[in-house]
Simulated scan of single mutants.
Amino acid sequence: MKNLKTIALSLVVLLSTVTITAQTKKIDTAKSSIAWVGKKVTGQHNGTVNFKDGLIIFKSNKVVGGKFTVDMTSMTATDLSGEYQEKLNGHLKADDFFGTDKFATATLVFKKIAVKAKDLYTVTADLVIKGKTSPVTFDLAVKGNSATTKFNVDRTKYDIKYGSGSFFSNLGDKAINDEFELAVDLKF
């Protein structure tokens, strides 16, 4: 009986000293997606942009980190086709907007993560677009091997001011909203 207690006590001590290691899960870039919506006074445009790579870090089945790289050269409008799509895609990739010749990627790095509810986190991350860093905050829902979020980005914080009523007057119906919407679906 004394040996059993000694063994049990040894097991408790051993298990309490085991450290829980983080688990890194890479995203499947082919199955993960980013959809965007940009609005203006007279309507909106929507499209997609692809991930180059990314990962989420878990510890004790909770999100504790994440880092993602987006291929800005893959940006395309999906609400147009033909010549109009080519023109919009070209303008979005030009220096007026995202300047993809100089800034081919954008990055997002989780900086602060708080549990909001079971499998729901409030994340504050550094978003880098056109070499400029600004924080964004969003809710991230995790279920199994996937995660989703929707949030808005103020493009003017990244020196993207084209058509912004915040910087230019007399734009009338040519004004473009400062914020664009992102809907992100991660598969890992």
Rank of each mutant, 00 (worst) to 15 (best):
N3E: 05
L4W: 07
L4S: 03
K5N: 03
K5L: 10
I7M: 10
A8P: 01
S10L: 15
L11S: 04
L11W: 01
V12G: 01
L14Q: 03
L14S: 08
S16F: 03
T17D: 07
V18G: 00
V18T: 06
T21V: 14
T24G: 12
K25F: 15
K26S: 15
K26H: 14
K31F: 12
K31T: 14
K31H: 15
S32R: 08
S32I: 12
S32M: 14
S33R: 07
I34Q: 01
A35W: 04
V37M: 12
V41Y: 09
V41I: 15
T42H: 09
T42S: 15
Q44Y: 14
H45M: 15
G47P: 12
T48W: 06
V49T: 12
V49G: 05
N50G: 10
N50Y: 02
F51W: 08
K52V: 08
K52L: 12
D53V: 02
D53Q: 13
D53W: 05
D53N: 15
L55D: 12
I56L: 15
I57N: 05
K59N: 13
S60T: 08
S60Q: 11
N61W: 04
V63Y: 02
G65L: 10
G66M: 10
K67M: 11
K67Y: 07
K67T: 04
F68V: 07
T69C: 01
T73Y: 00
S74M: 10
S74E: 06
S74Q: 07
M75W: 00
T76C: 06
T76M: 08
A77V: 15
T78K: 06
T78I: 08
T78C: 08
L80W: 00
S81N: 10
G82Y: 06
G82Q: 04
G82D: 03
E83P: 00
E83L: 04
Q85V: 00
K87Y: 01
N89Q: 01
N89S: 00
H91F: 07
L92N: 00
L92M: 08
A94R: 01
D95M: 02
F98I: 00
G99D: 14
T100W: 00
D101E: 13
D101R: 07
L108C: 13
L108D: 04
L108A: 11
V109S: 09
I113F: 08
A117D: 15
K118D: 15
D119W: 03
T122S: 13
V123T: 03
A125F: 07
K130Q: 10
K132S: 11
T133D: 09
T133R: 06
S134W: 03
P135Y: 10
T137P: 05
L140P: 02
N145Y: 09
N145I: 11
S146E: 13
A147P: 02
T149L: 06
K150T: 14
K150W: 01
K150G: 11
N152I: 06
N152T: 12
D154G: 03
T156G: 00
K157F: 02
Y158L: 09
K161S: 00
K161W: 01
K161R: 09
G163A: 10
G163D: 11
F168S: 06
S169C: 03
L171C: 09
L171N: 06
G172Y: 11
G172V: 14
G172N: 13
G172S: 10
A175Y: 02
A175G: 08
I176S: 10
D178I: 07
E181Y: 03
L182A: 04
